[in-house]
Amino acid sequence: MRQGLRVLNVAFALTLANVPALAHHSLFAVFDENQTVTLKGVVSKVEWVNPHVYLYLDVSDVAGKVTTWSVETFPPGTLRRGGLTRDKLGLGEPVTLLGYRARNGKDLVFLRTITFADGRDVVISLGDIKEVR
């Protein structure tokens, strides 16, 4: 995770000239950029669908009560092309993730980073890949 966070210090940009025409919903309409949430739980379901892949995360509180969070991310084609196939999304495993919480207060986040049980991190980003290398 530490390594993943270092990657975040790369500056990304908002230049939209090359954003594909088929963008889906506004992030602002759904998520709060000022409210990041760190969640630890077990991936109970992977929904490999367009226009967004969803993970479902079972999070237990100290009393053992389980809350299932919805975790929205890129479309399947984008994840797959980046090497994150459906079988690498941690189904049934404990993960730690960081996301932006939904503005309507639901247990819903947009995925920013996720750390899997085997130590792999995935960072979801947007920008010029040349800046990331």
Binding site: Q3, N18, G82, G83, R120, L126, G127, E131, V132
Partner: peptide
């Protein structure tokens, strides 16, 4: 990068913001 996979939604020539 090591154990970290960064998946990028490409924006050509994006400037730091």
């Amino acid at each position: 990068k090591g154990d970290t996979l960064v998946i990028v939604f490409q924006l050509e020539g994006a400037d730091p913001f």
